[in-house]
Design a protein around this nucleic acid. Structure first.
Lengths: 384, 384
DNA sequence: CCACCCTGCTAATTCGATTTAGCAAGGGGA
DNA sequence: TCCCCTTGCTAAATCGAATTAGCAGGGTGG
């Protein structure tokens, strides 16, 4: 075989199109042809504008039947190019993997998106600012209708570049800048009140301690949840006229730290009720309490936050104020899709939607004596 | 003001286009104009085919500079329409939310996808067959390049309709039908061997019991993991010439069930080593052992499977055979993108990639006596 | 009987990038 | 001098749906 001289080869261009693209999908043109109408007419019928555009009932029926029989599904890529709306949302978070919670956040978002026939892109930044921007751009390149930017724990954050070019919602976070953006966060302040009230209602008044933060403001770096839970706790106790017996601040809320904190507490104050700032700390507390030869709730009552899966794995089951991850996820998508942003002006700052954190009463709180006649809990008007 | 008579209004059609679509993105045409060339030339340059298509170095430089200066980013929706490839992958699983593992599966997939400049759609089916099909269709409507169909626990499953219309990979699952599809699964059989070998190596020979399944085949419905772990355990013990002292099958692998199973075991056999079929069962075992006034590992050694976060929360930290979720996720994407399927014929059945499950040795196994001279563990050639 | 309107459609354009086909200018060999 | 080839680029088609503009035919009022 003789090699063709280079210069005799005109252009080695093979029609790639016919090779790469799966040609077996039914298109609108196919439907139209099969119904004996133009694509225009078919498009009108299938978008429900048949009557408006004066397509005869007969033609309409033919189109509908053709679409049905061929199993036609509109190509959303094409529609997206034309209309600029892709029925697609980006969900960018800092940590998908390391917290089990993330699943529920995403789950709620997924459900809400599905209700509105949207699909979700997922991206994880691991807190890397450059990655944040890249992901957001990659999503906009693909024509997402909007982006939910989520943090795994409630905090303040700097808005990443490009986020607000199109509709966006902050989930579990509020912006450091006074930007007009919708934020969906759990009501951590009310949660603080709920937690401590669970103890107060059960008659605990004397020796109540907390693990995870200490008044007035010793909280883990950057955690808004910590600050607000603490505020709620402090305020509820003040209202009830009860003194906080002890408090152990913790830089990080992990089981071993809860364990050490509780050992310290048992030596120092021997509390009858402990509020742990999350369920992992509570696990550590359980371990330390058991090791001291004491029982929950007989000797020490424990309440906590988050409603981790862990809470029902512990014996006895843990009373805790739940982070409503599913609802948070749902609400973020709802806010994004239902309340389009006003890009130019409008509100001077963020719009914050607080989602209630429900108390899950289980078996870790001991009823001390008949509850006092419950004073209607007045919610103060203090700005938060 | 007099209302315009209906019939005088020609057609109330407002050019929606200019309203809906954000017109501020830089397009290829903008770049071309700014560089003083045609979009064709600009496209050639930016796709790296400048030399091939004989664009002069000068023109090439102008295009590159214009793209740089305007911050041009190609519209992937448009590219996708033309080329049929969207740099987008669908990840459909049965459970994102209820298992904390899911996060790591997704994490690995996300990382691998990012390495190849792909984005991931996420969908959750909750085991609903109709939803499976709908999700897969919705993803194909958006032009995904392929789909990873994942199960949260290793099992056999019926391939959903439409999955194999385009490239697809099964993650943590194998098909019931003899279909040519790539499957990525953890090596559960080898894991069974690892777990029990951890006990054998430490000198446990007499009273070894297992919780979660019982020979020859009492395993939770539909769990391939259970079957294969059990096989591995049985085989490793047979090889070592050690008799299984006791086995408690469990319909579900939750802490309370592990607790009850262990109580039963302590009465019946009082084992010195327990293999729990997952870490939740092990948590229950810890609780029952502590309640019996015994300690881990002093009185009872425990090994387990999964390497749940829980494993390092327990005291002492749990020795367990890890499910390599991150690697599983990565491998699924890699397999999907790097090894395009041969749609018509080729292999007669699925291609199965087994990912090793590493033993994480921690503090729950007691060394009984000096280890016997370790016979090089011959891996048998038995087909699995 | 003619201008006009309504009915019921269709042709053509558009979105943005990719790809095919091809053109103008210049150089070199016969 | 003429033909052919190469260089360096551009025009036009394409992907699939949505949308704008407009056309043919029949009926009606003046």
């Amino acid at each position: 075989m003789i090699a063709t001289p280079r210069r005799f080869v005109k252009r080695p261009l093979i029609p790639l199109t016919s090779v790469q693209v799966a040609r077996n999908r039914v298109t609108l043109a196919d439907v139209a042809r099969s119904a004996g109408v133009s694509t225009t007419a078919a498009s009108f019928v299938l978008s429900g504008r048949g009557a408006e555009m004066r397509i005869s009932p007969d033609a309409e029926a033919r189109v509908l039947r053709a679409a049905q029989e061929t199993g036609y599904r509109p190509n959303i890529v094409s529609r997206s190019l034309r209309t600029g709306t892709s029925r697609t949302i980006g969900f960018v978070s800092d940590t998908v993997a390391t917290t089990p919670f993330a699943g529920h956040l995403i789950w709620g978002a997924l459900d809400a998106a599905r209700d509105r026939e949207h699909l979700l892109f997922i991206g994880e930044t691991e807190g890397d600012q450059e990655l944040e921007t890249q992901l957001i751009e990659a999503m906009h390149d693909r024509g997402v209708d909007g982006i939910v930017f989520a943090s795994m724990y409630t905090r303040e954050l700097d808005l990443p570049a490009g986020l607000t070019h199109r509709p966006a919602v902050l989930l579990n976070a509020v912006p450091t800048q006074p930007v007009a953006i919708t934020c969906v966060v759990p009501d951590e302040f009310e949660a603080g009140r709920s937690a401590v009230n669970a103890l107060l209602r059960a008659g605990h008044r004397e020796r109540i301690a907390i693990i995870g933060a200490a008044p007035p403001d010793d909280t883990p770096e950057g955690s808004l949840a910590a600050v607000q839970r603490l505020d709620g706790i402090v305020q509820a106790m003040a209202e009830a006229g009860v003194e906080l017996a002890d408090a152990v601040p913790c830089p990080d809320w992990q089981p071993d730290i809860g364990y050490e904190a509780t050992r310290l507490l048992m030596q120092r104050t021997r509390p009858s009720g402990i509020v742990c700032f999350n369920d992992r700390l509570a696990l550590g507390a359980y371990q330390a309490i058991a090791e001291a030869g004491l029982t929950v709730p007989g000797d020490v009552s424990v309440v906590s936050f988050d409603d981790d899966l862990l809470a029902t794995w512990l014996r006895p089951h843990l009373t805790t104020v739940a982070l409503p991850h599913y609802e948070l996820g749902r609400e973020a998508i709802t806010a994004l899709l239902d309340a389009p942003q006003s890009p130019s002006g409008g509100a001077p700052g963020p719009t914050i939607r607080r989602i209630p954190m429900p108390l899950r009463e289980r078996d870790s709180v001991q009823q001390l004596r008949a509850p006092r006649p419950s004073r209607p809990s007045r919610r103060p008007l203090t700005p938060r």
